[in-house]
Nucleic acid binder design. Structure first.
Lengths: 225, 225
DNA sequence: CCGAAAAGTGTTGTATTTACACTTTATAAT
DNA sequence: ATTATAAAGTGTAAATACAACACTTTTCGG
């Protein structure tokens, strides 16, 4: 067998990425979903996705796809799983790798989102999605939840500076259960990498709440995010 | 755009699977590795891998590849990650999905393994592997370790019936640290799905050790493996 | 100056985890 | 028969982590 035949006797496939884009708003997790104004499956709901191109890595493809929709290029993203069943895309055979992304919901590019006919949907209100996208969301959510219990990834869903009340609401949304306020604050206080900025947020209460930020250097000192 | 063009304007890629095959022997985790007697990278060490074919799912491809080497077709396998960097295979562009498999090291097909020039290598003695296979092993090990702390997947590395001493040695190998015997047995005793068979193993001690088995029904009753 | 509404603050009991060492048993050797 | 051997098997107490719980403070608007 000549060396190049080693590869060429095998089939090739379309490779796609599909992105589960999480946001946090009004105390609930949200997903950025497309109501497809294009074929295939026009009119139905789906994740934002795209095909991997020559000259771009799988991770790069996922970043590109998310940036096309949100305009944001430095999001926290993680690969979830690759879906390779035969009939998963009824059009042609496509292997698709799911990534989740965490977005500060105040920051995305509204023009782009509108142009794609995309909408933020609160997680419990998620409509049925095309292909195996429902399963992708389920898997991504489970993975993101697990990661959030292990490392403070959730912070990527909040603005730079945040109050402890916001942070608690976020974790309640991620874990899907109420958290005791005093126990929560005790736990946060023990994390030296979540530090007071000195600022006070008065938009939500007369008294005002102390603002905190995530100190990446102090965290990386402990172990890798 | 005609509907078929939606797909055809995008490139296709070779898709492969690479399998991290774990065994347990003499108190240590082992890997089943190929010393390649074929191109490319002949003479070097690698994981067992293969290309995804038309008409088989990604999971099926992984099962086929492991069966080709071991003769075993009902192994515990899990997808780990998909590697899609540009230069990862220096020959052509290949996207590869890693799976780990757990093998009862007494059971594999020695003929097949010999024919592939494969060898069981104790984990600490793992040689340098081609391409990004070192990283795959690292990622698979981390994932398998995590899973083993959450559900009793490790049992797939032991024979049907096993002693508590074996089980403890297995978990010490997986976690890489010694475990207190009494605390370990207390924990196991609380798991009703690990049950005495009534048999006694006398190969390892004069006194003989009680044999146990994993009761899948009782376990699934609690939650999914 | 009073009401409202969110921010902030400690203690105690319960459950879980860890540390720790000797006895039992069957066989092989003498 | 006796003894030496080597692994199997067994319980308790201390330490730590986790969970439950309610009132006070602060500021501003009315």
């Amino acid at each position: 067998m000549p060396p190049e035949a080693y590869y060429s006797i095998h089939p090739k496939f379309h490779s796609a990425v599909d992105c589960i884009i999480f946001g946090f708003d009004e105390g609930e997790l949200s997903l950025l979903l497309l109501q497809r104004n294009f074929e295939p499956a026009k009119g139905q709901w789906s994740l934002m996705g795209g095909f991997v191109q020559e000259g771009e890595s799988l991770d790069d493809a996922a970043r590109r796809v998310v940036e096309e929709l949100t305009g944001l290029d430095d999001l926290y993203m993680r690969q979830v799983h690759t879906y390779g069943d035969l009939g998963r895309d009824p059009g042609e055979r496509v292997l698709s790798t799911a990534y989740y992304a965490l977005v500060d919901i105040k920051k995305y590019d509204r023009q782009l989102v509108k142009a794609h006919n995309a909408h933020w949907v609160k997680l419990p209100d998620t409509p049925h999605l095309i292909f195996d996208h429902d399963r992708m969301v389920k898997d991504a959510l489970r993975f993101m939840r697990y990661q959030a219990t292990v490392k403070p990834v959730g912070i990527n869903l909040l603005p730079e500076e945040f109050t402890l009340t916001q942070l608690q609401a976020l974790y309640e949304a991620i874990l899907g259960e109420p958290i005791d306020k005093r126990n929560f604050r005790k736990r946060i206080a023990a994390m030296d990498y979540i530090e007071k900025t000195g600022g006070i947020d008065k938009t939500l209460s007369r008294k005002g709440a102390a603002l905190y930020r995530f100190n990446r250097d102090k965290y990386d000192g402990n172990f890798k995010i």
